[in-house]
Computed example of a mutant assay.
Amino acid sequence: MMWPSIVLLTFVTLQRLGELVLARRNTAALRTRGAREVAPEHYPLMVALHAVWIIGLWLLAPGRPIEPFWLAIFMGLQALRFWVLATLKDRWTTRIIILPGAPLIRSGPYRFLRHPNYAIVAGEIATLPLAFGLPVFAVVFSLFNAAILHVRIKAENAALESAMILK
């Protein structure tokens, strides 16, 4: 049966495309309010990683059985993703955007983790391939994602500290 994997991949693809539209809108609005982007050098690599991850899943996953355990974890991560989006509202973006004078968000999942969105994405990058029975794919992309997140989190923390937002 191919349709369950196609439905799941379509959901993830449309979700990511919708988030890119939302991120562009939010980024533009933040820039009109005086926000600036920090450390944009790694952004194309991050976009490429996510694009290749989705394309790879489209090539390898259709027709594969879906593991209910990993699917349940992935769907739980989707709920957490929506919690992050609802918490950040118009400040959510896929870039590192610093809005001078804006307080650091400390509500929602940010009460528990400094970077919950990155933890969620790391979980998604691992669990969706595992849901399709692709453990090597999950490990390879998790390692690449960890390398990019290392650079990104370091740059974001430095930017927040220099903006005197993080204490």
Results as ranks from 00 to 15, higher is better:
residue 4 P to I: 07
residue 4 P to M: 07
residue 7 V to D: 03
residue 9 L to Y: 11
residue 11 F to Y: 15
residue 11 F to L: 15
residue 12 V to M: 15
residue 12 V to W: 10
residue 14 L to A: 13
residue 16 R to I: 14
residue 17 L to T: 05
residue 17 L to A: 13
residue 19 E to C: 01
residue 21 V to N: 05
residue 23 A to L: 05
residue 24 R to I: 01
residue 25 R to C: 02
residue 25 R to V: 02
residue 25 R to I: 01
residue 28 A to I: 04
residue 29 A to S: 10
residue 29 A to I: 03
residue 30 L to Y: 02
residue 34 G to P: 10
residue 34 G to V: 06
residue 37 E to S: 07
residue 41 E to G: 04
residue 43 Y to A: 05
residue 44 P to T: 03
residue 45 L to A: 10
residue 46 M to L: 09
residue 47 V to R: 11
residue 47 V to I: 10
residue 47 V to N: 02
residue 47 V to H: 04
residue 49 L to P: 00
residue 53 W to E: 00
residue 54 I to N: 00
residue 56 G to Q: 14
residue 57 L to V: 10
residue 57 L to K: 02
residue 58 W to R: 06
residue 60 L to I: 04
residue 61 A to N: 11
residue 62 P to D: 09
residue 62 P to C: 11
residue 62 P to L: 11
residue 63 G to D: 14
residue 65 P to S: 11
residue 65 P to W: 11
residue 65 P to T: 07
residue 66 I to L: 15
residue 66 I to H: 11
residue 67 E to D: 13
residue 67 E to P: 02
residue 67 E to C: 06
residue 68 P to K: 15
residue 69 F to S: 12
residue 69 F to D: 05
residue 69 F to R: 14
residue 72 A to Y: 09
residue 73 I to S: 01
residue 76 G to N: 14
residue 77 L to T: 10
residue 78 Q to Y: 04
residue 80 L to K: 01
residue 83 W to K: 00
residue 83 W to I: 00
residue 84 V to A: 11
residue 85 L to C: 03
residue 85 L to I: 09
residue 85 L to S: 00
residue 88 L to R: 11
residue 89 K to S: 12
residue 91 R to V: 02
residue 91 R to T: 06
residue 92 W to P: 02
residue 92 W to G: 00
residue 95 R to V: 07
residue 95 R to Y: 09
residue 96 I to R: 01
residue 98 I to S: 00
residue 99 L to Q: 15
residue 101 G to S: 08
residue 102 A to I: 03
residue 103 P to F: 06
residue 107 S to N: 14
residue 107 S to Q: 15
residue 108 G to L: 07
residue 109 P to Q: 05
residue 110 Y to L: 08
residue 114 R to A: 14
residue 114 R to I: 09
residue 119 A to Q: 10
residue 120 I to T: 02
residue 121 V to D: 02
residue 124 E to T: 04
residue 125 I to N: 01
residue 125 I to F: 10
residue 125 I to E: 03
residue 126 A to R: 07
residue 126 A to L: 12
residue 128 L to Q: 05
residue 128 L to T: 06
residue 129 P to S: 08
residue 129 P to L: 06
residue 130 L to E: 08
residue 131 A to P: 12
residue 131 A to C: 09
residue 132 F to C: 02
residue 132 F to M: 04
residue 136 V to D: 15
residue 139 V to M: 11
residue 139 V to T: 10
residue 142 S to K: 01
residue 142 S to N: 03
residue 144 F to H: 01
residue 144 F to G: 00
residue 144 F to Y: 06
residue 144 F to L: 12
residue 144 F to N: 00
residue 146 A to K: 04
residue 146 A to M: 05
residue 147 A to V: 09
residue 149 L to Q: 12
residue 151 V to G: 00
residue 151 V to Q: 13
residue 153 I to H: 03
residue 156 E to P: 02
residue 158 A to E: 13
residue 159 A to L: 07
residue 159 A to F: 06
residue 159 A to T: 05
residue 160 L to Q: 08
residue 160 L to N: 09
residue 161 E to I: 07
residue 161 E to H: 11
residue 162 S to F: 08
residue 163 A to Q: 04
residue 163 A to Y: 10
residue 164 M to C: 09
residue 165 I to E: 13
residue 165 I to L: 14
residue 166 L to Y: 09
residue 166 L to N: 08
residue 167 K to L: 08
